[in-house]
């Protein structure tokens, strides 16, 4: 049995006319790093909420199907039980910061306090998590005087510190600087290597291609494509359906049309693949 198991999940928010998730079935193995891509309104955030238990527990609405993580069904658990297994970092970090704490250190300790972790363990876990995401120097700052990107790192850290078995991230790097983005992807990849299961909604194809094990492309609340980054991110279906693709893929596709990319070489999704492919550009 897969670690994460979604069966025929269909969901409609209250006061809306149509379901935003439509019959989604998917399985994720423990330690897998899965990226969810899709245009705005495809249902990426809602799928994150369904994994995190906020759909339907917090948002109400009409839910059918099953979300199962580590053998437990979300419908059988309360939200405060569910968050011990699944950690969800929100798209807008501002919505996640508690507002009850004066410093970044205390903010990150908030979840541990509420789950009864002993004081000494709490301190060392907070320090360790802050070091992982590179925010140790923000420890004594107020969460509300930080820049957008710094707040986003704090929001991510406050979920990582809980050491959830399933980590769900809704565009966790949207406000980060470019090298910071790559670093955060690296931290998350390392978590997956140590057995944490990761589901991440993201638009940044270059880093998805390099770090994720599998990509699920959502469109109108349903799965359009699913496979390795190489399979999904080079599919013609993506551009036809309004998905963004990396410049490596798009420039090689255009080069192939102009006979500057060998027809027998797959389209690239990473810098390395693109460099290798263009080194073999056929002479005209």
């Amino acid at each position: 049995m897969a670690f994460v198991n979604l069966q025929n999940v269909t969901y409609q928010y209250p006061l809306t006319k149509s379901p935003v998730l439509q019959d989604i079935t998917l399985q994720i193995e423990e330690g897998e790093f899965v990226a969810i891509i899709g245009p705005n309104g495809a249902g990426k955030s809602t799928l994150c909420y369904a994994l995190g238990g906020f759909v339907p527990h917090f948002f109400k609405g009409e839910f059918s199907g099953m979300v199962e993580v580590a053998g437990k069904k979300s419908s059988d658990a309360t939200l405060d039980e569910w968050v011990l297994t699944v950690g969800l970092a929100f798209q807008n970090p501002f919505n996640q910061i508690s507002g009850a704490k004066y410093t970044v250190f205390e903010e990150i300790a908030f979840g541990l306090e509420n789950t009864g972790v002993p004081r000494e363990e709490m301190k060392s876990r907070v320090e360790q998590a802050m070091a992982q995401t590179g925010i140790t120097d923000l420890s004594d700052r107020s969460p509300y005087t930080l820049s957008g990107g710094q707040q986003q790192r704090v929001a991510l850290t406050s979920i990582l510190v809980m050491q959830p078995r399933l980590l769900v991230l809704d565009e966790p790097t949207s406000q980060l600087d470019p090298i910071g983005t790559r670093e955060v992807f690296g931290v998350i990849r390392a978590m997956a290597e140590r057995g944490m299961t990761v589901v991440m909604a993201e638009h940044k194809m270059e880093w998805i291609a390099q770090f994720a094990d599998r990509v699920i492309a959502l469109k109108d609340g349903a799965t359009l494509l699913e496979g390795t980054p190489q399979e999904v991110l080079t599919s013609d279906l993506l551009t036809e359906n309004g998905f963004g693709i990396s410049r490596y893929t798009s420039v090689a596709r255009e080069a192939r049309r102009r006979k500057r990319w060998r027809a027998d070489v797959p389209l690239p999704v990473t810098l390395d693949q693109a460099a290798e492919g263009f080194a073999f550009t056929p002479p005209s």
Partner: peptide, 27 residues
């Protein structure tokens, strides 16, 4: 903490002398 654009980095990796900014310049 900023990296050059994807195609600029690709051009550099391939040994281009000029800095390319977009698809047309690259091609």
């Amino acid at each position: 903490y900023v990296e050059p654009p994807q195609l600029t980095r690709l051009g550099k990796r391939l040994g281009f002398k000029e800095t390319v900014r977009n698809q047309e310049e690259f091609l």
